[in-house]
Nucleic acid binder design. Structure first.
Lengths: 132, 132
DNA sequence: CTGTATCCAGTCGGATACTG
DNA sequence: CAGTATCCGACTGGATACAG
C-alpha cells in the first residue's frame, strides 16, 4: 500500500474526497456511487440481501426490468465482486445469484442512505414542486 | 399523506425498498441515489460542505469540470433544495452557493458510504482486475 | 464573473427476436 | 431456464462559442 501521501482533499462531516484530476478519477466514493446510482443495482442488491435467488425469480420480483437489463446489472455486480453466480448443471440450466460478503457489507451504508431518503425525501419532493 | 398501506418491501440489513411498479418508481432511496450518482454532484456537495463558494471558486476547485456541467449540477442541486444560490448585485455579478440544512444533513449518510468505499474500494478494484 | 446556446460522442435503458 | 443479439430513443457529459 502506498504511503498516505498528502492528497488534496476536502473535509466535511467526516467526508473526504480528492478534488484534483487523477486522484478524483480514482476516488472510491465516486466510483461506488456511480456503480450504485444506476436504475436497478440497489434493488437487485436488496433482493439478494433477503435471500439468494435465481434469474427468473429476480425477474419476477422486480417485475418491470427487462431481461437485458437484469443480465447487465447482475454481470456488473458480479464483475465488481458484490454478487456471486452459481450455475447448476441441470437441464435446463439453473443459476443462483447471491450476495458476497462484500455485497452484504455494502447494504449497511446503503441502509443509512435509505434512512436519510425516507426522512428527507419529502423535503426534496417539496423543493422540486416549489420551483416547477 | 396516504396511510401507510402495506407496500410490498424487501428487508435487508434494515434496508427497505418497494419492489412493485408505481411504488418503486417513487422510491426515495433510488431517487436520492440517482441524484447523487452522477459525475459531479457529490464532489460539489462536499466542497460546499467545507465552505460556501462562488461559481468561479468551485470551477477552480474542481478543476476539470466544464462550465456547462458545473451550472447544470448546481441548478439541479438547488432545484432539489440541497444548495442555496445567492446573487450579489455587484458588477459584474457575484453568486455564492452554499449547502442548505438539507444538503448538510445529506453529507452524513454519504460519509458512511465514503467510509465503506475507502475500506472496500480496493476489494472492488481487485475483483475487477481478477475478471478483466 | 456567471452564465446560456449549440453541437456531438458515448452511454443507459427498453423492445424485440433468437439460442443452448 | 437463462441468457445473447440487434436496434433505437433518450439522456449524460464535454467542447466551443457567445452574452448580460
Amino acid at each position: 500500500m502506498p504511503a498516505p501521501t498528502a492528497v488534496p482533499t476536502v473535509l466535511a462531516a467526516d467526508l473526504a474526497l480528492p478534488v484534483t484530476g487523477a486522484d478524483r478519477a480514482a476516488c472510491p466514493t465516486t466510483d461506488v456511487l456511480r456503480r450504485v446510482g444506476d436504475k436497478w443495482s440497489v434493488l437487485v442488491l436488496v433482493l439478494l440481501g433477503r435471500a439468494p435467488r435465481r434469474f427468473s425469480e429476480l425477474q419476477r420480483a422486480v417485475e418491470d426490468i427487462s431481461q437485458r437489463m437484469l443480465t447487465r446489472t447482475l454481470r456488473s455486480l458480479e464483475h465488481d465482486g458484490l454478487v456471486s453466480r452459481t450455475v447448476f448443471p441441470t437441464v435446463p440450466a439453473t443459476v443462483e445469484y447471491a450476495l458476497t460478503e462484500l455485497g452484504k457489507s455494502l447494504l449497511v451504508p446503503l441502509s443509512a442512505l435509505a434512512d436519510w431518503s425516507a426522512v428527507h425525501g419529502p423535503a426534496i419532493q417539496a423543493a422540486r414542486r416549489a420551483q416547477g
